[in-house]
Amino acid sequence: MPEVHSTAYDSKIEGNVIFTRFDAALNWVRKNSLWPMPMGLACCAIELMATAASRFDIARFGAEVMRFSPRQCDVMIVAGTVTYKMALAVKRIYEQMPEPKWVIAMGACASTGGMYRSYAVLQGIDQLLPVDVYISGCPPRPEALLAGLMKLQEKISGEKSFAAQKPELTKKLNEALA
């Protein structure tokens, strides 16, 4: 029987010490446990639920913990039509989420107002919140939401997280090094 080697990390050789960049480790932790705030406002929420269910299984990307409290969330998935009556409520919930936080605009309505060119509908949630990923579709299939989530993971893995988290300390370090 051939011997199996772990390619990622060999504890026999490397011991209990891992060398990496701090940002890389932090981003790795963040992107693989994105807890969503399910902001389900219309039919996109049905696809969001399907994405969370067993066939598509959003847990494969570490995002299965739908929290209905914004205090425990990392990414707000705006799934559906945002009416003007709901708009400031969505913004308030977003503001209650702790940093760092991201926003996915799921579907045509959340991205641009979609087919509702009407007096009652906000023409895209990006007028109120900073959106990281837009997903096309009406509604998007669960695969599209998963693709959007993976795009967001890619985006997170390139972020300068430490500098964003500790701006003053980074400034001091830069000054000391200069």
Binding site: Y84, K85, A87, L88, R117, S118, Y119, Q123
Partner: peptide, 15 residues
């Protein structure tokens, strides 16, 4: 603090 509305861009519509 309650709500606001804006004029919707019709882009040549209604479609």
């Amino acid at each position: 603090d309650v709500a606001f509305t804006k004029v919707t861009p019709m882009e040549g519509g209604p479609f």
